[in-house]
Computed example of a mutant assay.
Amino acid sequence: MAAHTTDPLHTEAKSPLAKGPTAPEWRKSSHSENGGACVEAATNLAPSTGTVPIRDSKRPATTAVLTLPAPAFAAFVAAVKAGKSLA
């Protein structure tokens, strides 16, 4: 599945544990190519669940998932794109 240019997350990797029609489609941040701390988000679940799960991309099968409300995730992405401090 090709990423959309307006999507803040550009690469996609399906979870090996995903099953069913509402399985998360994990997408890695466009800034994850730096070899540092990387995360993946499953934004495809926002319309059906109202949430966006997030996980560590280096340990996808063993990492706990943090789930954010979709509006909070959108605000976070907008703030990062705008260069705002999140501290």
Rank of each mutant, 00 (worst) to 15 (best):
A74Q: 12
A82R: 14
P8C: 11
G36L: 08
G35M: 14
V65N: 01
R59I: 11
A18M: 07
T62R: 09
A2H: 14
R27M: 14
K81N: 13
L45W: 00
G83C: 01
S85H: 11
V52K: 06
L66C: 02
I54A: 03
P47C: 06
T63L: 02
H10I: 12
K14P: 07
K58Y: 00
K19H: 09
C38I: 02
A13M: 10
A61L: 12
S48Y: 05
L68Y: 10
H10F: 03
N34D: 14
P53G: 02
H31R: 14
A13T: 12
A70E: 07
A37I: 04
H4D: 15
D56S: 06
S57L: 00
D7I: 12
C38F: 04
A37H: 08
V52I: 12
P53S: 02
P69V: 10
A75R: 12
V80C: 15
F76Q: 00
F76L: 13
A82S: 13
K28C: 04
T5V: 14
A42F: 01
T11W: 10
G20N: 08
G20K: 07
P60S: 04
D56G: 03
P24N: 01
S48G: 05
K58H: 07
F76H: 04
G35V: 14
P16Q: 05
A41Q: 00
T11V: 10
E12R: 12
T22M: 13
A82L: 08
K81D: 13
L68Q: 11
S85Q: 13
H4M: 13
K81L: 11
S29T: 08
N34I: 06
A41M: 04
G36K: 10
K58N: 05
G20H: 04
N44K: 13
T51Y: 09
K84R: 15
A3I: 09
S30G: 15
C38A: 15
V80M: 14
V39I: 15
L9I: 13
P60I: 03
L68P: 04
T67G: 03
A37V: 10
G83W: 01
L17S: 10
A23N: 08
S32G: 13
K84N: 15
L66M: 08
K84L: 15
T6E: 12
E25L: 12
A72H: 08
T11N: 10
R59W: 05
R55N: 05
T22G: 01
S15F: 02
W26Q: 03
W26I: 05
V65K: 05
E25N: 08
V80Q: 14
L9D: 02
N44S: 10
M1C: 09
A23F: 08
K28P: 00
P8D: 11
T63C: 11
K58I: 05
G50P: 08
V77Y: 00
R59G: 00
K84G: 09
P71N: 07
N44D: 11
A82Q: 13
G50E: 01
T49S: 15
T43C: 02
R27C: 06
D7V: 13
I54G: 03
P71S: 09
V39A: 06
K58P: 01
F76A: 05
